[in-house]
Design a protein around this nucleic acid. Structure first.
Length: 478
RNA sequence: GGUGCUGUAGACAAAUUGGUAAAGUCACAGGGCUUUCAAUCCUGGGUUUGCGGGUUCAAGUCCCGUCAGCACUGCCA
């Protein structure tokens, strides 16, 4: 049977890193097995689901390059199917209507808590007599539908990453609600744990690969597979992504959407690369820099770690830098232009393209994030620079202004080249009898307003192309 | 409270069926290059698998106990 896996995000929020990483693992596994990767939107929470979140999820997956083979399938389009299935469970006596009010459930839980017991539904409405049912209905009570879970059951499965996992029925919290409250004779909105199973069966999902936070749902779902007469798929629960403090990475950690990473200057390929490394390790001899495509060739759950993976910004930065350094200049230029525009730098992306590419060629190898290019190249985009303290000090040194005046006077009217620029420096050194280091350092201070930065000669040429070298040096002398 | 999962250097982690642990990567430190910074290259340090027992010729790997962290415990997903 061919492999069919899915990513099933809920549009109650933006696409976040946990879901994205799960999507990566599913994608990798599907590709490795020559199977299908399916996208299903779990929008059964009508209150919290929002179209803009669905859009964010779709856009995010596309940006990451996690193309899906089927879908998106929306659960809200499938309520008829869920109702049919629920009705059949009802008919078989595997599920029943429970008329408890939320308040009654609340007091039951409070009592359990007071006695230091685990909160659970005590199945009190499992065997209601026809009279009791009639009485509740006469009262006008609505009923949820609960699926029976026998305390004596023992549920076991072989997890793709964790091996044998087993659970006792009595630890599952009592008969589970599979449909929200509704009036007599109707079936309320179906709930997550139920629709997931119905859909996974219907869509022929062969492996359910999801985060470890779902591990407690698995035994309940296995029971549902059995009740629905379906083959239980394989399950693989991947480790969670943790923040510095070891808690599940969440919105509070400053990243609510995958696009936050884009804004921060990470490329999709690098980010996917890093997510893959969060819990999976490459095979012997394989580099840590790889494409999703090449990782898919060797991906398997035997190399997925069980422990939670701490998110490491340093490592992400390094990986991103490797992608940026290896990127051809035109491509990098395309990616950088929006960041410079965003920063408010004045330039014409078309007319200035050759100049921009020269700039990218100079700074490309130093970038870790795309956003680094803003600060790094600022002195080339804004006409006036404020010299740093060190630069000011350098410009005040004996003989500096004299030497820079000589340089300024020697700048040719035609475009400067690396050779002519070097010749000017050599001539000034000789003529003024000063150390070359002094000239170089001072020139850097005068030209860029700083004592460190990208290659001086290239910076000068870039400035010269705009005619700003004269302006800067004049300012430095005066 | 209950249940489950996890625990190898600062981080990610590797380690055939138990058989020399800390491979590799990041970070960090030192050096080269660049008369700058970054990048890059070279070198280096860290140490004994959370802790305690047990089985074994041999345990990161198996067993028992213990501690810690995390997750779940909804008419959310």
């Amino acid at each position: 049977m061919s492999v069919r896996v899915r990513i099933a995000p809920s549009p109650t929020g933006n696409l976040h890193i946990g879901t994205a990483r799960t999507a990566v693992f599913n994608w990798l596994y599907a590709k490795n097995k020559g199977g299908s990767f399916i996208l299903r939107i779990e929008d059964t929470d009508l209150e919290r689901s929002k179209p803009e979140f669905t859009q964010n999820i779709l856009d995010g997956l596309k940006w990451l390059g996690l193309n899906w083979d089927e879908g998106p399938i929306f659960q809200t389009d499938r309520t008829a199917l869920y109702q049919t299935k629920i009705q059949s469970l009802l008919d078989q006596g595997l599920a029943y209507r429970a008329y408890d009010t939320p308040e009654e459930i609340e007091t039951m839980r409070a009592r359990q808590k007071a006695r230091n017991e685990a909160p659970r539904y005590d199945n009190r409405h499992r065997n209601l007599t026809p009279d009791q049912i009639a009485a509740y209905e006469a009262e006008g009570r609505t009923a949820v539908i609960r699926f029976k879970i026998e305390d004596s059951r023992e549920i076991t499965w072989t997890d793709l990453v964790r091996g044998n996992v087993s659970w006792k029925g009595r630890d599952l919290g009592g008969d589970m609600v599979i449909a929200r409250a509704s009036n007599t004779g109707t079936i309320g909105a179906p709930l997550y744990n139920f629709v997931v199973v119905v859909d996974d069966i219907d869509m022929g999902i062969t492996q359910v690969i999801r985060g470890e936070d779902h591990i407690g749902n698995t035994p309940k779902q296995i029971l549902l597979y059995e009740a629905l007469g379906a083959t239980v798929p394989e399950f693989g629960h991947t480790p969670l992504i943790l923040n510095e403090t070891g808690a599940k990475l969440s919105k509070r950690d400053g990243v609510t959407s995958i696009f936050d990473f884009k804004k921060m200057g990470y490329t999709a390929a690098a980010f996917c690369n890093y997510m893959t490394l969060l819990g999976w390790s490459p095979i012997e001899g394989m580099d840590e820099i790889f494409s999703l495509e090449s990782a898919s060739k060797v991906f398997g759950f035997d190399r997925v770690n069980k422990a939670g993976a701490k998110f490491d910004w340093d490592k992400l930065n390094w990986i991103n830098s490797q992608y940026l350094h290896a990127m051809p200049v035109p491509e990098l230029t395309d990616l950088l232009i929006p960041y410079w525009q965003e920063a408010g730098f004045a330039f014409d992306p078309i007319a200035d393209r050759p100049w921009l590419e020269r700039l990218v060629a100079v700074i490309g190898a130093s970038l870790a994030k795309l956003t680094d290019a803003v600060e790094m190249a600022e002195y080339l985009f804004t006409q006036a620079v404020t010299p740093t303290e060190d630069a000011t000090k350098q410009l005040g040194l004996d003989g500096v202004k004299d030497a820079l005046s000589a340089v300024l006077a020697a700048i040719p009217t035609e475009a400067l080249t690396e050779e002519s620029a070097k010749a000017i420096i050599d001539a000034v050194v000789k003529e003024k009898g000063v150390k070359k280091g002094l000239v170089m350092k001072s020139l850097r201070a005068g030209l860029t307003g700083s004592l460190q930065g990208p290659d001086l000669m290239q910076s000068w040429l870039l400035l010269n192309a705009k005619g700003w070298d004269r302006i800067r040096l004049t300012g430095a002398i005066g």
